[in-house]
């Protein structure tokens, strides 16, 4: 008496096709040559097959990034879909690599593929997790930094889903501000 239902045989399609990228810092090569497309996926099952197969973010060496973007958008500021945009940025301290990083990254991915941002989903470009000695970073990229209502809703949802305490502020930076920064800090356009 096999109880395999048709539902179990059909993969669950995602609203968007997503591309996973891997970046490994190698100063001997151009920045672009260090960025590689891993694969694309458009079902829940294919996402898990990929996620379960690769290293956890916390186990990557310093200087590496994982990026997951909508298919057709490169994880670069210069991409047409990104150049007017910005990112919600989470800076993690060194302890948080062991306590929060992997959870934050997975939760962010589940928000992307599950379309957790509702009507704001169209504003989402992708997300990046960066492993750095001075402190890891997680960014959620949106396509237009001049859409305050949408950006604020996205920020609130992200903060809620990651269970970041209300008293810890989360900032949104425009990519253009980050490119021309003179000091070590980039001003926040928005905050939740």
């Amino acid at each position: 008496d096999l109880s395999i239902t048709p539902e179990m045989l059909i993969k669950h399609p995602l609203q968007n096709r997503w591309a996973m990228w891997f970046f490994k810092s190698d100063k001997a090569r151009d920045w672009c040559d260090n960025l590689r497309l891993v694969t694309t996926f458009d079902t829940v099952e294919d996402f898990w097959a990929l996620y379960n197969h690769i290293q956890k973010a916390s186990k990557l060496p310093s200087g590496c990034d994982y990026s997951v973007f909508k298919d057709g958008i490169q994880p670069k500021w210069e991409d047409d879909q990104n150049k007017r945009g910005g990112r919600w940025l989470i800076n993690l301290n060194k302890q948080q690599r062991h306590t929060d990083l992997d959870n934050f990254w997975l939760e962010t991915l589940l928000c992307l593929i599950g379309e957790a941002f509702d009507e704001q989903s169209d504003d989402i470009c992708g997300a990046v997790v960066s492993i750095r000695t001075k402190g890891d970073k997680l960014g959620l990229w949106t396509r237009d930094c001049n859409r305050p209502d949408s950006i604020m809703k996205i920020g609130k949802t992200l903060k809620e889903r990651l269970k970041i305490p209300p008293k810890i502020p989360l900032g949104y930076q425009a990519h253009t501000d980050a490119i021309v920064k003179t000091g070590s800090t980039v001003k926040n356009r928005y905050q939740v």
């Binding site: 395999i4 179990m8 045989l9 669950h12 399609p13 995602l14 609203q15 829940v44 099952e45 898990w48 097959a49 996620y51 379960n52 939760e107 589940l110 593929i113 599950g114 379309e115 957790a116 509702d118 989903s121 889903r161």
Partner: peptide
């Protein structure tokens, strides 16, 4: 409508082996 999946449903599908 959008194909939306909540986190619990997505997490449940993680544990189903690929052969299904």
């Amino acid at each position: 409508g959008k194909r939306q999946y909540d986190r619990e449903f997505l997490l449940m599908l993680q544990s189903i082996p690929e052969s299904c």
